[in-house]
């Protein structure tokens, strides 16, 4: 999928809300966090929400950077490696306990596992299976609406 700005944002929000939420729901109980299960779920979903919300600002930056590419495309590897700066920023905020609605600071190991698994699965879905139910998605720059 070669994205437009609105397509990027819509795709990010949809994938995190559906695929990210399913992965988070399945993964949270086994994450190395010393807290009641309800607090663990609250923490992981706050992190997921932060990736979505802060991600809108990241998408603006990616869109700007993409303008220097003649093809106006976003190579596959960019979609994976942009997880590094995004993970570092959200990870710093989460492990310091600075994200709103966090019950407590998130353990670094738990964050790394959670963020990495969600990012990888979302990236894989975006690079293929997403096209199966949404047949027009790739021709609309990632827009679902």
């Amino acid at each position: 999928m070669v994205p437009t700005l609105f397509g990027r944002i819509q795709t990010r929000l949809w994938l995190l809300a559906v695929v990210g939420a399913l992965v988070t729901a399945a993964l949270t109980p086994v994450l190395p966090m010393d807290a009641p299960l309800a607090d663990k779920y609250q923490a992981t979903f706050v992190v997921l929400g932060a990736v979505a919300v802060i991600g809108i600002a990241w998408e603006l930056l990616y869109h700007l950077l993409m303008q220097w590419r003649w093809e106006k495309d976003w190579p596959t590897m960019f979609g994976l490696f942009t997880g590094i700066p995004e993970g570092l920023l959200v990870g710093y905020l989460a492990t310091q306990g600075w994200l709103p609605f966090l019950p407590a600071a998130v353990a670094p190991a738990a964050f790394v596992i959670h963020f990495t698994v969600v990012w990888l699965v979302v990236w894989l879905v975006a690079n293929g299976p997403m096209r199966v139910p949404f047949i027009r998605w790739r021709f609309r720059g990632g827009r679902l609406l």
Binding site: V2, T4, G7, W70, E71, K72, D73, F139, G141
Partner: peptide
Amino acid sequence: YQGFNYPKSVWGGQLKA
């Protein structure tokens, strides 16, 4: 030089829009 017949974004990206 260009990857394909047109810039890639004509088939779904911002150039198409």
